[in-house]
Design a protein around this nucleic acid. Structure first.
Length: 558
RNA sequence: GCGCCCGUAGCUCAAUAGGAUAGAGCAACGGAUUUCUAAUCCGUAGGUUGGGGGUUCAAUUCCCUUCGGGCGCGCCA
């Protein structure tokens, strides 16, 4: 089994440095974590550490002197490590012999679809809950960004060795749902010529009328001019089901599949809410005031205490959420990630407080805030107000630009910065569009491999490949890029930022395109051709694995 | 008023868990194709990282302050 070359070299170096420091006369309490990273400037070597500078303050010595001591006593017997040098402030840089790059190729060939996986999570159970839009209307583009981020992050965490479950929480309960049912009921009656007053804060969207029309199609005037319990229940359920199906379908078309759909009303049916209130009562975090029941969230740093049961004895949304989160922990998740839109950020503190009141550590719950999306058309902002009439749903967006482009655009920037989504760029099949740029690299590789096969050069595992023939600058660059996938996955998983992977993919595609332009893959020299084919096939594998994580498809021809 | 996020090239954004000369794309200008897909590649130009302090050997990154933009501050969800 080919193992991770870089990881091995790192270990060798780290062990030696650490041993070295320990054996010295240095008076240090705790040795800081020694970090080896890849310098952006290649004249600084393949790996670099800043440990000498980190130690300099405590030791009151010049960083360069410390670096000298470390390097002089370095005992590294790894054939792959070449030169070691010290530079200005106190960096220690390691140059590796070119051999290591060929080992990367071997590793990729051997691991194939598993290349890029790391065991950071060690099987830890983690839940990612996202989208969770109230089922009172269709998904809009902002929800699409949450969906893309949540889905990609889940895939990244899986690749990083966590056991991940994706969940959607359905608020299928309470006043808003009653109101939703009523809205359709009134529209239904209106369509049938009945005069019935529309609820004051009812849902006014056109989709409500569409649902009413569907009721007519299926049930004609069966519920006409009725306002009894049965008809109300009927409209509520019909509408809920209808909208939820739409949401599920939209998400499916967007490439997002959830492992679980969790219904709020199930919490009530199973008495979970009552249980959690009693638990909090026992723990002494609840008190009565002004006829309502309050949770002492201020104990855990919230601005003010929050109501869980209203004066009218109806629980708040917050109460359901507490019960819901308790249920998550009871299902054995060690870590919970909630992904919310930016308009909910004010909710983080109270949710974290609730989790702590339940007895779980603060950082067991992580909340990821996804900033808003602005759509641009013809250089102008597209109004997103529901009333404005220009409202664009996720479904519209997918229809207009396609799933791949939509997903990529949502993932190419950091989730905590606003996304400016230019529809014209997204639709252009040109170099402006980064999605095509990356997919094109993949298609190009597939095309070359096919061509080589037709010419009789097949990638044969049994043949000995002379990887040493890969000695061009562009080839080294490309292999180095290939080697850094694992670091990228690791970083994305630790910071919960999928955009690191997106950026990486673009760079990788760029390295390949450059290589392609300068060198021919299929040459007169069969051995060279074989070596180069292996290289681009490895590139294909890495592109494939990364695009799969992002949920963007891989076309073999374009 | 209080809290959170953001401010980097003309525009949209990056910047490895504080690191070395702040990088891409678009737009502008100039080049490359008898070649495995030009949806590509190369070059030029473009910056006081909003302003001002501080911490550090080292700050776009951390702290304080100020300005500008977004969002949130219900017994709504």
């Amino acid at each position: 089994m080919k193992t991770d070359v870089i990881a091995q070299v790192k270990k060798t170096i780290l062990d030696s440095i650490e041993k070295n420091i320990k054996q010295s006369n240095f008076q240090i309490k705790i040795i800081p974590e020694i970090i080896l990273l890849t310098p952006k400037n290649k004249s600084h070597g393949d790996l670099s550490t800043n440990i000498a500078m980190q130690l300099s303050r405590e030791l009151k010595l010049k960083p360069l002197d410390i670096a000298h001591f470390i390097v002089d006593n370095l005992n590294i017997k790894d054939s792959i490590i070449g030169e070691v040098e010290m530079v200005r402030p106190g960096f220690i840089n390691f140059c590796l012999k070119e051999n290591w790059l060929y080992q990367v190729i071997d590793e990729i060939r051997e691991k194939g679809e598993d290349y890029g996986k790391v065991n950071l999570g060690k099987g830890k159970k983690i839940q990612v809950e996202f989208v969770s839009v109230n089922p009172t209307g269709p998904l809009h583009v902002g929800h699409g960004k949450c969906a893309a981020v949540g889905d990609a992050l889940s895939n990244i965490l899986k690749a990083a060795g966590y056991k991940v479950e994706k969940e959607y929480y359905i608020n299928d309960q309470g006043r808003q749902i009653d109101l939703l049912g009523q809205s359709v009921q009134v529209r239904y009656n209106n369509l049938l010529g009945e005069r019935m007053e529309f609820p004051a804060d009812g849902y006014k969207g056109e989709y409500i009328v569409d649902i009413a029309k569907e009721v007519i199609e299926k049930f004609q005037d069966k519920y006409k001019d009725r306002d009894d319990q049965e008809s109300r229940e009927f409209f509520k359920e019909f509408t809920l089901k209808n909208i939820l199906e739409g949401i599920k379908e939209d998400l499916k078309n967007f490439g997002v599949e959830f492992d679980a759909w969790f219904s709020e009303s199930s919490l009530y049916k199973q008495n979970k809410l009552q249980e959690v209130i009693e638990l909090l009562q026992q723990k002494g975090f609840l008190y009565k005031e002004k006829g309502a029941l309050w949770l002492k969230t201020t104990v855990f740093g919230d601005e003010k205490d929050r109501v869980v049961i209203r004066k009218n004895s109806i629980p708040t949304y917050f109460a359901s959420d507490i019960a819901y989160h308790q249920d998550k922990y009871q299902r054995g998740f060690e870590k919970i990630i909630d992904i919310w839109g930016a308009d909910h950020h004010g909710y983080i503190q109270r949710m974290k407080a609730a989790v702590q009141a339940l007895g779980y550590p603060e950082d067991s719950l992580g909340v990821l805030i996804v900033q808003f999306v602005t759509l641009i058309r013809d250089g102008k902002e597209v109004g997103m107000s529901t009333r404005g009439g220009e409202f664009i749903t996720l479904r519209d967006l997918i229809k207009e630009v396609g799933k791949d482009v939509a997903r990529y655009f949502f993932l190419m920037r950091s989730h905590d910065s606003h996304t400016e989504f230019d529809l014209d760029v997204a639709k252009s099949q040109s170099m402006e569009n980064p999605v095509y740029y990356i997919q094109y690299a993949y298609a190009r590789i597939c095309s070359i491999i096919k061509k080589a096969e037709q010419a009789g050069v097949k990638m044969d595992k049994s043949k000995v490949i002379k990887l040493q023939l890969l000695n061009q600058e562009e080839e080294f660059e490309l292999i180095k890029k290939l080697s850094s996938l694992k670091e990228v996955i690791k970083k994305s998983a630790l910071t919960w930022k999928p955009h690191f992977l997106t950026t990486y993919l673009y760079d990788l595609a760029s390295s390949f395109h450059k290589y392609y332009t300068v060198h021919r893959i299929i040459t007169e020299d069969e051995e060279l051709t074989r070596a180069r084919l292996i290289l681009i096939d490895c590139t294909r594998i890495v592109l494939f694995n990364s695009l799969k994580i992002l949920g963007v498809s891989v076309p073999e021809s374009m």
